[in-house]
């Protein structure tokens, strides 16, 4: 298939969902970049370039996906913080550290795009990454605790409280 704007082969297949009805675009690399840069020119709600960049990049996630696939992806909810993929695409900000695990498949190409690398080589904290992961579980347990209390599942709430205390005290 040829690029819709020049004679080069179309290597980027973009599904634009912003106009109500999905519009499919088939572009070469240069025109895809141009299109995505322009598409990102709308003012970011957060008002920062970082958010703008993330928005642009998030749009690139739509490359090679059909409208149905993207719609399904948009509904995915992080079990820890409750953010949907749609929320992330629109705000350009993630909801919690676990999103990097939960949305790994979608985020890695994006990170590669932004940074050109996927392996951190800089400074490390003195505490192990495992401790950080354990602490992030608190986000999920606290949310579950709130729900348990609201639904009057007191036994569950009590078990969750113990779990939370255990992690907090493990520091």
């Amino acid at each position: 298939m040829k690029c819709q704007r020049c004679e080069k082969p179309a290597t980027f297949h973009i599904t634009e969902l912003t106009g109500g009805k999905p519009v499919e675009l088939h572009l070469c690399e240069d025109h895809a970049r141009e299109y995505l840069t322009q598409a990102g020119n709308e003012p970011a709600s957060a008002g920062s370039m970082a958010a703008l960049l993330a928005q642009q990049m998030a749009k690139q996630l739509a490359l090679g996906q059909t409208a149905d696939e993207l719609a399904e992806l948009d509904q995915q909810v992080c079990p820890y913080c409750g953010i949907t993929f749609y929320d992330f695409r629109h705000q350009g900000r993630l909801g919690c550290p676990y999103d990097y695990v939960f949305f790994e498949k979608e985020l890695h190409p994006l990170l590669l795009n932004i940074h050109g690398e996927l392996q951190h080589t800089g400074k490390r904290p003195t505490h192990p990454a495992e401790l950080s992961r354990r602490h992030t579980e608190l986000i999920r347990y606290r949310r579950q605790l709130q729900e348990a209390i609201q639904e009057e599942h007191y036994e569950l709430a009590s078990r969750l409280r113990d779990k939370i205390r255990e992690i907090e005290e493990s520091t």
Partner: peptide
């Protein structure tokens, strides 16, 4: 930097 045990600001 972010604290491991809390959601990021948006959540």
């Amino acid at each position: 930097r972010n604290l491991a045990s809390y959601p990021f600001m948006s959540r």
